[in-house]
Design a protein around this nucleic acid. Structure first.
Lengths: 111, 111
DNA sequence: ATAAGATACTTCGCCTGTCAAGGTATCTCA
DNA sequence: TGAGATACCTTGACAGGCGAAGTATCTTAT
């Protein structure tokens, strides 16, 4: 594996949006899911993750509330707004275009 | 089309390396090829392109020489060093991993 | 002749996203 | 009691993208 997380830059938001598309979740859990899905090859750094939450909330793509856990560390739960759902749809489409483009630009016989 | 230039971000160098893999070329031409391959949907901005050349040359991945054109604007030709070839190979592999990872992270039923 | 547009490269400085480092607080288990 | 997991937050440095502005030559239409 040869992953530079700088190469995933720009998809942090989309990855988070995707993780919230099945219902609300929280930072720590999202991070674990991402690590698990990537087979441990990739993780969102905490600073990156929480910076992204702020950015997404300010942009009106997610909403947050403090959990009401009576035990354990407090959690802030996030979920998608309508705009967030729209954005996820657009970004998912955009990914297909971007993927096809990079494929074409790196293609072995593209001369 | 909805292309994330932020993902493309980390691939600028690889795209340039790829364009040089068939023999020497120069900035303006590379830019046109990229625009042409992408069907006009994407172009490397000049500042981005020339910054990348500096970075790649400093890193020893490409070499440059001034062209000896007797007419027309002067051109600076670039070509790959051995290290550049190696890097292109690695990055191309890395792209496959990155692509698979984002696919997995955005997959519709990945819960 | 002249102006516009293409070819071709360069530099400056702002902006944005990533992340190392450091911090807070609670719970579990040896 | 203390280590490690859970859970969140902030600051500041750094790097890459790119808008803007500049230089110089050649071609083509008026």
């Amino acid at each position: 594996m040869n992953l530079s997380s700088d190469l995933l830059r720009g998809y942090t938001d989309t990855i988070i949006l995707r993780r919230l598309s099945g219902g609300e979740s929280y930072g720590y859990r999202i991070n674990q899911e991402v690590a698990q899905i990537s087979g441990g090859a990739f993780e969102l750094k905490e600073a990156t993750l929480y910076t992204a939450f702020r950015r997404l909330e300010t942009a009106g793509l997610i909403r947050s509330r403090w959990g009401d856990e009576t035990s354990g560390a407090r959690r802030r739960y996030y979920d998608l707004t309508e705009a967030g759902r729209d954005r996820l749809r657009e970004d998912t489409e955009g990914w297909k275009d971007t993927r096809a483009l990079i494929d074409a630009l790196l293609k072995e016989d593209a001369r």
